[in-house]
Every structure is written in C-alpha cells, then in structure tokens.
C-alpha cells in the first residue's frame, strides 16, 4: 500500500514535471511563443545589393554608405503624419549633435517610387536638415533594399480612391564598416536616440568584417 502510494506520488510528480516542461517549451520555443519583434537583423551593408538614385540624380547603393557611419530609414513624401515626424525628429537630433554628426550619412529611402520621383524627393528633403539625402528608384530595387534592411512596405488603398503605404518606421544605424549597430524606434526620445547615433559613429573598424 505504502509503496504503491509512493509510486503514485512519483508518477504524479513526473507528470507534473512533464506538463511544466511542455508548457515551458510551448511558451518559449513552441507555437505559443510570443512573436519575435524582428524576424532577423538587417544585413551588413557590404552584403546588400541595390541600385537607386539620390535626390540630386546621382546613382547610389549600399556601397555609397560604407566608409562612413550611416542612418537609414524608409518612408514616402505623401505620408502626412509619421514620415514628416521622423524627418523632423532626425533633423532635431542632427541639430543637437552639431559638428559631431558631420561625418554621418543620413538617407531617407522612399517606399513609394511611383509618386516619389527624384524631383519630388529633392523638393521634400529640402525642408529638413541639409544632411538628409533622399533615395528613390525602380520599385524592384526599392524592394531589394528594404529586404536587406529587413524592412517591409505595402500599398494600402484609401477611402478616396488613392493609396497610402504601410512601412517600417524604424531608423537603422550602421557603423563606418557598414555593420548594423542598432535601430531607433519611431518617435523615440532624443535622450536615447542621440546616444545610439553616437555609438554608431564611435564604433570604429578595429574589427573588420
């Protein structure tokens, strides 16, 4: 009797352990795991390949950015709210950093090349900090660029027969070797954004790759 109850207790304990392990697996690695915030990190710029045109009509690509620290973000000029806010935020961070941001490449890549021609980009970026460059190009090339940054964009119809774009609003930071350093979230406070930019600038090429 006694042995059987001990055995029963042991069996119950093992079952409980099993359930605990299973629940843990389910929540951490299994189907019940929370969706990861980002499926993958942006590639190093040296592993990206795309051909775009800047707002002055010059050909540009990931190689344009290698050699200097860079800050890249996606948006579109028909965006009434999120994109001008990001451009204003960035302008503010650059102003706050003054000469320290002098060596930084700052690029706004449009996800709406259909409307954002070179001329449209030139006019638009002219309203913000002069360091901000505007890049556009064929949609396939924009798509390829976004894939490298692990950014997404999608055309969405609006009420009046027009369209808007859903898109990744984070700002991507790379060091001068073109290695990904970190992202700045949409509308992140200057107190945390500026130190992130400084870190990207300060990370020198002591370890190449």
């Amino acid at each position: 009797m006694r042995r059987r109850s001990i055995l029963r207790l042991g069996a119950a304990g093992l079952t409980a352990l099993g359930v605990t392990l299973f629940v843990g697996w389910w929540q951490v690695d299994g189907p019940g795991a929370p969706e990861r915030p980002r499926s993958a990190l942006p590639l190093p710029l040296s592993e990206m390949a795309f051909d775009l045109t800047d707002h002055e009509g010059k050909p540009v690509g990931p190689e344009t950015l290698i050699g200097r620290p860079s800050m890249v973000f996606f948006g579109f000029t028909y965006c009434p709210d999120v994109c001008p806010t990001t451009l204003s935020d960035i302008s503010g961070w650059l102003e706050a950093m003054g000469a320290d941001a002098g060596g930084l490449e700052v690029v706004f890549v449009t996800v709406d090349p259909e409307r954002d021609t070179v001329e449209a980009m030139a006019e638009y970026v002219g309203y913000f900090h002069p360091a901000i460059r505007g890049w556009t190009g064929p949609e396939a090339q924009v798509r390829q660029a976004a894939d490298g940054f692990r950014a997404t964009f999608e055309k969405v119809a609006t009420e009046g027969g027009g369209y808007t774009m859903d898109h990744t609003a984070s700002v991507f930071l790379f060091d001068e070797a073109g290695r990904f350093v970190s992202t700045i979230d949409y509308h992140e406070a200057r107190e945390t954004a500026v130190p992130k930019i400084r870190r990207a600038i300060d990370r020198k090429t002591e370890a190449t790759g």
């Binding site: 915030p37 709210d81 999120v82 969405v156 990744t168 609003a169 509308h187």
Partner: peptide, 19 residues
C-alpha cells in the same frame, strides 16, 4: 480639403507604421 477625416497612425511591435 474635400475629404477631411480623423485618422490614427499606429506602429506595431515590428516597427511597421500604418494608418
């Protein structure tokens, strides 16, 4: 404006903004 309306922007956990 011919079509004024109140919209809401939101940014999800993946950093994607939509309206």
């Amino acid at each position: 404006a011919m079509m004024p309306m109140i919209h809401r922007s939101a940014t999800d956990a993946k950093g994607v903004s939509s309206m």
